[in-house]
Amino acid sequence: MYGAVVAVKDLSLSVRRGEFLTILGPSGSGKTTALMLLAGFEAPSKGDILISGKSVAAVPSYRRDQGIVFQSYALFPHLTVRRNLEFPLEMRGIKVGEREKRVDRILDRVHLRELGGRMPSQLSGGQQQRVALARALIADPPILLLDEPLGALDRNLREQMQGEIKSLHKEFRKTTICVTHDQEEALTLSDRIIVMRAGRIEQTDTPEALYDQPATRFVANFLGEANILENLNCEVESDAAQPSGTVAMIRPERMCIAAQAAPKRADADRRQSVIGTVDDMVYAGPLRRYNVRMGESLLIVRQHVVSGEQIFRPGDEVRLDWLRSDIRFVAA
């Protein structure tokens, strides 16, 4: 709690050994507070934190055997890369010879062997991130905590570092808990994802299950884009019965767009077709995104760009269709 504000409430979760677990949520959802509790920078107002069955709720952060990577990297600006990496080993009483061997090994692993003598200010953002990861791993902690680890990097560098983090996790098999608001990052890196909202867990599952089977409207909209099929001028058809208290949802990439008079698809008997009006078209490299007005709703369609395909413009009447089996029902 922060004064009268409850940042995290009724949070109960377990992390499997060697798992990459991501806590995902918007600003103010409680995800960073959850990580601070795990790191020992905050103490729970009630409840407990167990690591390997032992309570650590009252154990200070510097006594917990954990590696931590902060969004700002938190490298020592007055120390070289090598000295930044030696520091956690020195604090653990590792002898000089062994420290040097470990530093050499980890520098080789993160492809920074030639940069050991540089100061952090002389490194790029990606290089600083690799040093921060190496420093968190060098003492061989059983648990690795990542706080928005790629938030300070540009898109291309983020994608490169996602691959590097995934590779390091596969190699070292550290139990890793990552906090982020970046959905793509969570989907790419995680074995499981926890989606948080207003200090509580909204849903926990694998990336594939969360994206394909969101339990609530919030999860559907937060993890990617979602078309909530309500206020249409027709009834939504589905292969499954709609549970009470839910609304129909379909992902934009599951919808197909065609000219109103185009021939129907070969599997038309498994699809629902509707007519709408193009409100807008956005070209985004490999994809075109159409906003299509239907009834009181604006539906999103994502279509892969293919040479020679018909392009629709605002005002065009189009036919949308989708497989009835692709409809999902989420709690309203």
Rank of each mutant, 00 (worst) to 15 (best):
A4E: 15
A4R: 10
K9H: 11
K9W: 04
S12K: 13
R17W: 03
R17N: 07
E19A: 00
E19F: 05
L24M: 05
G28R: 13
L35I: 07
M36V: 01
A43S: 15
K46A: 15
G47D: 06
G47V: 01
K54A: 14
A58F: 04
V59T: 10
Q66M: 15
L79I: 01
R83K: 15
E90K: 15
R92H: 00
V96N: 13
V103R: 06
R109D: 09
R109L: 14
R109A: 03
V110G: 06
E114Q: 15
L115I: 09
S124L: 05
A132H: 03
L144W: 00
L145F: 10
E148R: 01
P149K: 08
L150S: 05
D154S: 03
R158L: 01
M161E: 04
M161N: 04
L168D: 10
F172E: 09
T176A: 07
Q183E: 04
R192Q: 09
A198Q: 15
R200I: 06
Q203P: 05
T206G: 10
P207C: 03
P214T: 09
P214K: 07
T216Q: 02
E225Y: 13
N227R: 10
V236S: 10
S238L: 08
D239P: 00
D239W: 09
G245F: 06
T246S: 10
M249E: 04
P252V: 12
I257V: 14
R270F: 05
I275T: 15
I275S: 11
M281W: 04
M281G: 04
V282E: 12
R288G: 04
V301K: 03
R302Y: 12
F312S: 04
R313T: 14
D316P: 09
R319L: 06
L323P: 02
